[in-house]
């Protein structure tokens, strides 16, 4: 189970199903196989993390699932629908690896942007929802601040609030807390868990951080590079809700250690990363 080359599809109601997906990029005359033979499923309401070395194709995988790029081979379905249909129905919330905030909009206007696009609610309702979300991510004081005057971590949190604003069924998070300090990161992890519990969303989180993956996930998928592929999977059977006391729990340590070991024995091609 744990080190199966292919992660399991999970039980019947798959929110996300990725079947034999590969993606090749053309770099000038060279072809780069970014992903090869990726198959896994995410159950409805499940929290799954993807962990793997830099450049193994994690961002590419999230982009494929959200339909921002098309797979070179294989197929992806979102529940009963295609990726394109799911996107048209605004099922995705995407937290990008870069903050990607629009510089002429205030924090609040950035959060409500996608609601405006969807013409959801009145202007006053959107505003109220935006303020509520900014308060949730600890930015209640910065509602009218433009992105250029926010710190990197604060910009990240605006990005998270923006993704949550559309009440997504599937939350795709690309290293959302990568730029945060350890304390804020742990607070954000607790926050993300509560949002995920409250909204009953399905979550797919890309991370570099073993502790974060264990703390948040029901299941962790381990990837390796050269070409990007799945090399293992780890079930996280820790009780929920989880709080920060878990970080001193023996079971937490055991799972984190297990995951670290999987990462290091998975044939990560370090030389290719540094050549």
């Amino acid at each position: 189970m744990e080190n199966a080359a292919e992660a399991s599809d999970g039980p019947t109601s798959a929110a996300v199903k990725v079947s034999g997906v590969g993606r090749t990029f053309r770099l000038g005359r060279r072809e780069l196989v970014a992903l090869q033979g990726i198959s896994f499923g995410v159950r409805d309401g499940e929290f799954v993390s993807i962990i793997g070395p830099s450049g193994c194709g994690k961002s590419t995988l999230l982009r494929l699932i959200a339909g921002l790029i098309a797979p070179s081979s294989g197929s992806i379905s979102i529940g009963e629908s295609t990726v394109r249909e799911a996107r048209a129905a605004r099922k995705f919330g995407f937290v990008f690896q870069e903050p990607t905030l629009l510089p002429w909009r205030s924090a609040l206007q950035n959060v409500t942007l996608l609601l405006e696009l969807a013409r959801r609610g009145s202007a006053a309702e959107r505003r109220a929802r935006g303020i509520e979300l900014l308060e949730l991510v600890g930015l209640g004081q910065f509602v009218d601040t433009p992105p250029a005057k926010l710190s990197g971590g604060m910009q990240r949190r605006v990005g998270i609030a923006r993704a949550l604003a559309v009440d997504p069924q599937i939350l795709l998070l690309d290293e959302p807390f990568g730029a945060l300090d350890e304390i804020t990161r742990q607070q954000m992890n607790v926050f993300l868990q509560s949002v995920w519990t409250a909204q009953r969303t399905t979550a797919l989180l890309v991370t570099h951080n073993v502790g974060e993956a264990v703390f948040l996930s029901d299941r962790v998928i381990v990837m390796s590079n050269g070409p990007g592929r799945i090399v293992g999977e780890l079930q996280i059977d820790l009780p929920r809700p989880r709080d920060l006391t878990l970080l001193q729990d023996q079971r937490y340590f055991a799972l984190a250690g297990q995951l670290t070991q999987m990462l290091f024995t998975s044939g990560v091609a370090l030389q290719s990363a540094y050549s």
Binding site: A66, L68, A88, R90, F92, F96, L113, L114, L117, A118
Partner: peptide
Amino acid sequence: ELMQVGGA
């Protein structure tokens, strides 16, 4: 990409 995700 953000606009694409937003179904714009």
